[in-house]
């Protein structure tokens, strides 16, 4: 009961209550979703202590055993406990760790924000290396992906319209009867980008979305009925 049946009943009960509450605005159902989400946040807060334990233990063992790269582990542990210390200090001293003049916010501003922004910016390189690899794969799927990507990319950048102006000029040279100004105004890349995003992209997105919704409902139902219970390790 305590190991298996109880938790399964709890899953069933919690999920069913939330589903019912979705349709009933009256008390006590109306605020049940918000209440349960608050409780989830509280449980999650406690679980962060387990995460802290896991991370600190992993690196403390490395330091104690002088394993390869122990010095980096020392840096990590120092940063971890230093942040916790400054957080608690700011909380006590400034009433909130997130007070603008608290030292904790200094860490946020000069360490976390630049680190986040730089990691995010490395994507500019990775996106090109991934595209380059997709270019080398010679099958229909990869080719389609790449053509669509190039069209949208050219439609999205200023250089796209310059390239189109060049192409227009070339067409005009080959077919002198065409009107160069009208050709230029046509802005093929920008038009292709808008069309690709609004029509085929939206269509496939909807098909995938409907499938995902059905898959998600089926998954939820399997959990609610206790058919899927890997999380209880059975």
């Amino acid at each position: 009961m305590l190991y298996r049946t109880g938790p399964l009943i709890l899953v069933f009960g919690t999920a069913l209550l939330l589903i019912i509450a979705f349709f009933i605005p009256h008390k006590p159902f109306g605020d049940l979703e918000a209440r349960f989400l608050n409780w989830y946040a509280i449980i999650s807060g406690f679980t962060f202590l387990l995460g802290l334990d896991s991370l600190a233990r992993h690196h403390l063992i490395k330091i104690v055993r002088r394993e390869k790269g122990w010095f980096y582990s020392l840096l990590l542990v120092t940063s971890l406990f230093g942040t916790l210390f400054w957080g608690l200090y700011s909380w006590i001293r400034y009433a909130s760790p997130f007070a603008l003049n608290a030292p904790f916010m200094w860490l946020y501003k000069f360490m976390i924000i630049p680190l986040q922004a730089t990691m995010f910016a490395t994507l500019a390189f990775f996106i090109f290396s991934a595209a380059y690899r997709a270019f080398r794969v010679r099958n229909l799927a990869a080719t389609l992906l790449l053509i669509a990507a190039c069209m949208v990319m050219l439609g999205n950048v200023p250089i796209g319209s310059s390239i189109w102006a060049g192409i227009s000029w070339l067409i005009h040279q080959i077919f002198p009867n065409t009107n160069l100004e009208i050709l230029k105004r046509w802005e093929l890349f920008a038009a292709a980008k808008d069309w690709l995003m609004a029509i085929p992209q939206a269509a496939a997105g909807r098909g995938i979305g409907i499938g995902l919704a059905l898959g998600g409902i089926a998954m939820s139902l399997r959990i609610i009925l206790g058919i899927e219970r890997t999380y209880l390790s059975s």
Binding site: G51, S54, L55, H58, L115, M119, F120
Partner: peptide
């Protein structure tokens, strides 16, 4: 258990 560990909940910290 040490192989199934916590890193960080920060998006790019996790990536790093």
């Amino acid at each position: 258990q040490d192989n199934i560990s916590f890193l960080t909940s920060d998006q790019f910290g996790y990536a790093a």
